[in-house]
């Protein structure tokens, strides 16, 4: 059948629109996963054991199962419970929760990694536990967790392709729609790959800037 890339230009608008949805879903899920991760980490580290138990079980479950399976659960499970969410929202929730668990892991490690001498230094000055956490521990933990959380966000961008299977018309599903009209999978998936690659470059550049800004404060 050979390759014929001349079919691409007609569908450029469709691919660009798909790319925008990919960016939108990535950003929304990233925000959810960031705050969800902080919440989970704080609950697991500081809440009474009994309160944190369901959250720890949830984390354990989500770490040990594939994202695709989780997406099916959330999409069909919500319907089952009578909550009919648009696919986009279900996708954001699924991706966001999945990566919140991974972010929480990183944040917990970052908080624990702050040297005990730092607590002692702050406490001998008379700072309370909360003040120590806010002014001494968290600012140092942030520095340690930004690079690995950035890596998670890059993984999130690529995993956002999975929401095509629950019917979110992002980049992957957009190219599939084009393929169903042209029967040219190689060309369109390659084009989609190129779009992802470019978005990824942009994301990496943005993350590097954030990292640099945080690191200069040393």
């Amino acid at each position: 059948m050979g390759l014929d890339f001349t079919v691409l230009p007609k569908f450029i608008d469709q691919l660009l629109l798909g790319s925008m949805w990919t960016v939108a879903i990535t950003v929304s899920a990233a925000v959810l996963s960031f705050f969800g991760g902080i919440f989970l980490a704080v609950v697991v580290l500081y809440a009474p054991k009994l309160v944190s138990l369901p959250f720890r079980v949830f984390s354990w479950l989500f770490m040990g199962t594939p994202l695709l399976l989780q997406l099916f659960l959330i999409y069909f499970g919500l319907i089952e419970l009578g909550v009919d969410l648009p696919a986009f929202v279900a996708g954001v929730i699924g991706l966001g929760l999945h990566f919140a668990v991974y972010n929480s892991d990183i944040i917990q490690a970052g908080i624990k990694a702050v040297d005990t001498g730092q607590y002692e230094g702050a406490r001998t000055l008379g700072l309370s536990k909360l003040q120590t956490l806010r002014k001494v521990v968290v600012p140092q933990a942030v520095r340690a967790v930004v690079p690995p959380i950035g890596n998670n966000m890059i993984a999130l961008l690529k995993d956002s392709a999975l929401v095509s299977v629950i019917g979110v018309t992002e980049l992957t599903l957009s190219s599939q729609l084009a393929i169903s009209k042209t029967f040219r999978p190689f060309e369109f998936y390659l084009a989609a790959a190129a779009c992802y690659y470019v978005i990824n470059l942009g994301l990496e550049a943005g993350l590097r800037r954030i990292e640099r800004r945080i690191q200069t404060a040393r």
Binding site: K158, S160, A161, I179, R184, P185, F186, A193, Y197
Partner: peptide, 22 residues
């Protein structure tokens, strides 16, 4: 760079659906 910069799902699709074309 190429493999880590693009989704595994797309790579799989290129190989499986696009492979016959090449």
């Amino acid at each position: 760079s190429v493999i880590r910069g693009t989704p595994a799902l797309i790579q799989l699709f290129i190989l499986y659906f696009g492979g016959p074309q090449i």
